[in-house]
Design a protein around this nucleic acid. Structure first.
Lengths: 114, 114
DNA sequence: TTCGTGTGCAACTCTGTAGTTGCACACGAA
DNA sequence: TTCGTGTGCAACTACAGAGTTGCACACGAA
């Protein structure tokens, strides 16, 4: 697998944490925010939020820009979209395999009867 | 949120682990398998596989049936599908919000110029 | 019944990481 | 320049969970 697998991996790991999903929710609601202001609306410290934002950044789920002395974050949709497509494709793949296995099983059953 | 959020939560947590994704891959390839036979094709012990299967089962990603004295597992697609849809909807939601924020920002900029 | 093998249960280790606190530094405003 | 506040860095604690090993039990086959 190419780097797409890498993206999926980091995105899944990033989304697996409830606090990080909260961070993303807040960020999506505000459009743009700093770690300090995000921490106000969350039950954790600023430093915890900073760490979560670093993970989200590594997964490509957020973007950061320096404005003066503060760092503003904003959500990105590309990685999430990639992962959603991967997951849908995986579900479709499973369905395909299951259907195939079912056909084989039924064919074997028919043969047994005859 | 209802139980759909619960599903998404457990599915994300389940898929976040690389070994569990391997287990699912193997299971999808074989259609049906026991923890013991799955452990043969994986770099971990049978007990580790059993634990992973328990997590996957709790997330609704696999199904188990007892056949004689062995327990056979098979993949399920419903939960994965639900999560894929949730993720796609989330990406769309973010896009919507970002577009809205962009419009507001541009409108404010226009006003400032005049 | 006896033997072999697949499962289940429990205790344990160990690593990763979420979270905290404390302090130093940077930078904008008065 | 001085003060206030937002960031960054580092050390530390604590807990969850991935993985192992050992043993008891269940059940099919000879």
């Amino acid at each position: 697998m190419d780097q797409r697998a890498e993206v999926v991996d980091t995105v899944l790991a990033a989304l697996a944490d409830p606090t990080r999903r909260q961070v993303l929710d807040l960020l999506a609601a505000r459009g743009q925010a700093t770690a300090t202001t995000l921490a106000d609306g969350l039950p954790v410290s600023r430093q915890a939020v900073v760490k979560h934002l670093a993970v989200l950044d590594a997964a490509g789920l957020v973007d950061s820009i320096k404005v003066g002395r503060e760092v503003r974050y904003a959500v990105r949709t590309e990685s999430l979209d990639t992962t959603a497509r991967w997951m849908a494709a995986l579900a479709a793949d499973w369905d395909r395999r299951l259907a195939k296995i079912k056909r084989v099983a039924e064919a074997a059953e028919q043969k047994e009867k005859s």
